[in-house]
Amino acid sequence: MDVDTADAPVSAPFDVQASLDAHRAKYEPLQVTRPIPIALDLGNLLADDPNPLDVPPSSSSLESSLRSNARDCVQFLVNHLFALPTTTAENHVVVNLPAPTTHLPREKPVPKAKPMTRWERFAKTKGIVKQKKSKMVFDEMAGEYRPAYGYKSRNNLVENDWLKEVPASADPMADMFQAERDEKKERIEKNLKRKRRNEEEAAGVARNRAVGVGAPLAHRAVGSAEKAERKAQLDVALAATRKSTASMGNFDKKIAAEKTLKTKGVRKLANLPQSVSDEKSRALKLISKIGTGEPVVNMRKAVGQALGGKKRTAGGDRERPTKRQRKGK
């Protein structure tokens, strides 16, 4: 600065603007512009500069161009970081970062919901909400707080009492201590049984799920063919259960959009004519009967059908009353 002013003629006025510009030129600018704008992901403190690096052809210039490019990008990033809304926490000014926009893979799969136990399922349908209870409850008999359950609880003390009352209805010689112990054991057994059942059911759910997320990687790939096969198996099983009622599924309640079951086996069509000549001969036979007094229809069969549509049993033509008729009598 001194040199500049010494060189200038004494009479010339001091150019403040030029001096300021010269001073500023020594520093890098605050505002950064690029042909292609720099993309920012402030949540990850990340700047992506898609512009190719401009390197003059000499080995020593690589470092300086890397550095100046980096500086510009960081300046751009910092400008945006400092413009974010701030809060104060523990004597520090803190900027609230937006959510990251660059998605990165998780390290573990998304956790699956634990299968519900029978009680939980029931509670959900009934809208029963679990309420927090205090571990210590006031025991009015003793006039002090005691644990709700377990060691030193009221229940526990009664259980371990040295004297037991024999109710009037009970056998006076019965061992009430043993009876209580047995009862407790039974309760525990029952609970364990339910626990086991819940676990089994949960395992079943897990097995069914094993085709998707969380399954071992080796088992995970499910092709469309395998899927179709599994679906076909399911269809067969479903058809079997639908037919497995006393009425072969005839009187089951229909579900909306339920497919009708296809009956397997060869269905015999009615006694249809086989050919034109066959039809002709049959018609002629029928016509020849008309007017001769011979019955045109099979009377026995017709009567049977009219009475109840029942098939004749092999045993004979004996009429069996229908259920309703029997009731009526």
């Binding site: 990850n44 403190l45 990340l46 700047a47 992506d48 898609p50 512009n51 690096l53 980096a70 990008c73």
Partner: peptide, 10 residues
């Protein structure tokens, strides 16, 4: 802070 520079990263 992270800076990725150059079009080849995409």
């Amino acid at each position: 802070l992270l800076v990725f520079s150059g079009p080849l990263f995409t």
